[in-house]
């Protein structure tokens, strides 16, 4: 299932590596990555594919906790929300 990972916080070395490694360990495939500045902070947006059998809420929670460990805010959301809000 398509999902979006957003990582925001102060830019520092190794963020992409850490988040990518975490996603790899949890069977999540990264399809696209882009970076930008959101409200003066570093923002990384990843389009990912999560396996259907994955417990999505739990993965979102674990990612959020991983974010706390590395000092970033990490969200995992169904891509459907973005599709719904921005397409007619």
């Amino acid at each position: 299932m398509h999902a979006v990972v957003t990582v925001t916080g102060t830019d520092r070395r190794g963020i992409i590596a850490k988040v990518s490694a975490f996603l790899f360990e949890h069977g999540v495939n990264i399809e696209d990555i882009s970076q930008t500045i959101l409200g003066g902070q570093f923002a990384m947006i990843m389009m990912v594919d999560v396996e259907e059998e994955t417990d999505f809420s739990r993965l979102a929670e674990e990612l959020s906790m991983e974010g706390e460990r590395i000092g970033m805010s990490i969200r995992l959301q169904h891509a459907a929300l973005f599709d719904a809000m921005h397409t007619v």
């Binding site: 947006i45 929300l81 973005f82 921005h86």
Partner: peptide, 9 residues
């Protein structure tokens, strides 16, 4: 996907 739209949301 459009980065701007993700950020806006």
């Amino acid at each position: 996907f459009d980065t701007g739209q993700v950020i806006e949301t």
